[in-house]
C-alpha cells in the first residue's frame, strides 16, 4: 500500500489533550479512517501546533481525502513518499 505525507495547517493550533477526551478523539479518527481503508501511522507537529506532517498508508489519494474530510481535517499538500534512513548505508 502506498505511503503518503500530508501537510496540514491549523490556524488555531492542533489541540488533542492527553486524557480520555483525546483518546476518544484519536479512536474516532481511527474508526473513520478504517472505513476508507486508510491508516494513520503517526504525525510530526510543529512547536506552535499550527502545522502537522502526517504519515498515512492508504490505497490512493482519494481515500486519504475522503477520510480527512469525514474527520474534518484540512489538507494543504499531499505527496507519495518512501522511507529512507541512514542505516540503509551502514
Amino acid at each position: 500500500m502506498p505511503r503518503y505525507m500530508i501537510e496540514r495547517t491549523f490556524p488555531d493550533g492542533l489541540h488533542i489533550p492527553i486524557n480520555n477526551v483525546g483518546a476518544a478523539t484519536a479512536a474516532q479518527v481511527g474508526a473513520v479512517n478504517a472505513g476508507e481503508g486508510v491508516h494513520w501511522v503517526h504525525s510530526y507537529v510543529s512547536d506552535d501546533k499550527k502545522r502537522t506532517y502526517c504519515v498515512y498508508d492508504g490505497p490512493n489519494p482519494e481515500a486519504i481525502r475522503r477520510a480527512a474530510s469525514k474527520n474534518g481535517l484540512p489538507i494543504d499538500k499531499m505527496m507519495e513518499v518512501s522511507v529512507l534512513t541512514p542505516s540503509f548505508y551502514y
Partner: peptide
Amino acid sequence: IAAQLFVS
C-alpha cells in the same frame, strides 16, 4: 466544539 475541531 473544541474536541470536534481539534482546538482548545
